[in-house]
Amino acid sequence: MEILIPIVITLVGAATPILLAALGELVVEKAGVLNLGVEGMMLVGAIAGFAAQFYTGNPYFALLIGACAGAATSLIFGFLTLSLSANQTATGLALTIFGTGFSALAGAPFSARPIELMRPLFPAELATHPVWRVVFGYSAPVYFSFFMVFAIWYFLKKTRGGLILRAVGENDLSAHSIGYSVKGVRYAAVVFGGAMAGIAGACFPLLLTPQWAERMTAGRGWIAVALVVFASWKPFRLLAGAYLFGLVMTMELYAKAGGGPLSVIPSELWAALPYLATIIVLVLISIRRDASTNAPACLGKPFLPSN
């Protein structure tokens, strides 16, 4: 029991950024846009959040700046793919390369200069007992990610706005002919996805390692993209998937530290597991391509109205 508590806490830390970024990407993809630049937007969010925390020491402000930076980066993608109808896959990849380079450049002056980690949301008295620590011991982004799972599910399933968003992702030409602004909806979705990726990126310096390191998101953005497919575009499945992947990553850390039975499997294999799982899931999904996979029909296709 006592051993489990730190595992759970590490797990939550590993899963939260993936979940946040994946939730954003889920909304983007439901609107029919495939943004593969999540990793890049996360890195821009990470350096922006780090810098804001470094200068102000206000982690909430840092998260906000991270969100804004992610959203601004996503606007580059939005302008190229939505206004200029550029290829989404290529633009997304370029965005990741851009974000990686930009964050490394902007982050160079900050290397080896620590910041303060974000404090838990609830007062420490609530979390004195180890079991309560599992419930109340986290900082705000963790609770925010849970809230967003529910909020996005509710938005997509129960609101008119969500219906319009799904309609745009399902059949852009029909949505256009009924009179909805396909570009407007997609821009909004892309910017939302960028903001969520930015927050997810800012979680790395604020929650996990209070230092700037190049490429500190370490491919989590790619896992988030894969997770959306893995979860068949369903928010609650996304929650389960993010925690499953988080668990595997936590196992890797413990295996590396030589933690008893876990080290039977080499830590390199643990490290590879999420990526292996992603590949397997993608293969499985492409084998059984039917309606139940729930993929938006216009995913990745540029919107080209005839008139």
Binding site: R160, L163, I164, R166, A167, E170, N171, L173, S174, A175, S177, I178, Y180, A291, N294, P296, A297
Partner: peptide, 20 residues
């Protein structure tokens, strides 16, 4: 009623009507 329907295949009848 158009010749080519502007319907959304993955949505329900009710959702399609609501959108219009």
């Amino acid at each position: 009623v158009f010749q080519h329907f502007s319907l959304f295949e993955a949505l329900t009848v009710l959702e399609n009507i609501a959108l219009g």
